[in-house]
């Protein structure tokens, strides 16, 4: 038909992928055994496929750069794309468990790179289970920001262990974050908001960011405005619950 032959799933006018071809279930079981490839260790993460412009063979200068921002459960990638232009020198990665959604974000980034030469070279996406494989991707203290935006609420008590913010998983996030690094969480579910706050409050290696710092941080505004999930909550006039915490050095 009239559709672009090479990319029938992409919009003709913008070249961006269209969401209707990448619909996926809203939930994915983080407990099931994964069958996708996982890097053996952080040194096995292939940066050149994720950031070809920064890690081309001729350019040695950028090759020591490491990923600094991680968007855990990045969904359709709205936050990554906003952050990309806000922090053009920082490498960031989105991690998403649903294969089709990851595929969409991948296509979206590629299309943005084509449409805006030189831009969006610092963002990428990977399909993985970040509740299991954070240490396979990041070295100790590698990250300066981690994002957990509108995570799956898992209301039932027996499923609380599937929540991405939980007392024991915070140990791993604290390991991947450098001292002073910031963890951003937001949800439209009050119960989950309280839970995430409580988990972070009770963890000895995190402290809440003071409100003036929170207001001064340009990222704060993006949490609710940049993501697809946040825009949806906004459209429906819903409330959001924010918890932003800083990684502390452990007290001995």
């Amino acid at each position: 038909m009239l559709e672009n032959k090479t990319n029938p799933t992409h919009s003709k006018s913008t070249g961006l992928p269209r969401k209707r071809f990448y619909r996926a279930r809203a939930h994915s079981n983080p407990l099931s055994d994964s069958h996708f490839p996982v890097p053996v260790s952080p040194s096995h993460v292939d940066y050149s496929t994720h950031y070809p412009q920064h890690f081309s063979t001729s350019d040695q200068a950028g090759s020591c750069k490491k990923i600094q921002f991680a968007d855990i459960g990045c969904g359709f990638g709205g936050l990554l794309i906003s952050l990309s232009t806000l922090f053009p020198e920082t490498l960031m990665i989105g991690m998403e468990l649903r294969d089709k959604v990851t595929e969409y974000v991948k296509e979206r980034i590629l299309a943005l790179r084509v449409a805006n030469p030189g831009q969006y070279q610092n963002i990428s996406v990977v399909r993985t289970n970040s509740m299991k494989y954070i240490p396979n991707f990041f070295e100790k203290a590698q990250l300066s920001k981690m994002f957990f935006l509108f995570p799956d609420p898992h209301f039932k008590e027996k499923n609380h262990r599937r929540r991405v913010i939980s007392p024991f998983l915070l140990d791993e996030y604290a390991y991947a974050l450098q001292v002073g690094g910031i963890i951003y969480t937001i949800t439209d579910v009050e119960e989950l908001g309280d839970w995430m706050k409580a988990c972070l409050d009770n963890h000895p290696m995190f402290e809440a960011l003071p409100s003036e710092e929170l207001e001064a941080d340009p990222v704060t505004k993006l949490l609710s405005s940049a993501t697809e999930e946040g825009q949806k909550v906004d459209r429906n006039g819903g409330q959001t619950f924010l918890a932003v915490y800083r990684r502390l050095a452990p007290s001995l």
């Binding site: 007392p167 604290a174 390991y175 963890h203 000895p204």
Partner: peptide, 15 residues
Amino acid sequence: LDGAHEIQSFSLGHT
């Protein structure tokens, strides 16, 4: 009894 939160390292390499 309050939990062991500080991870020193992960030893990764086994397949």
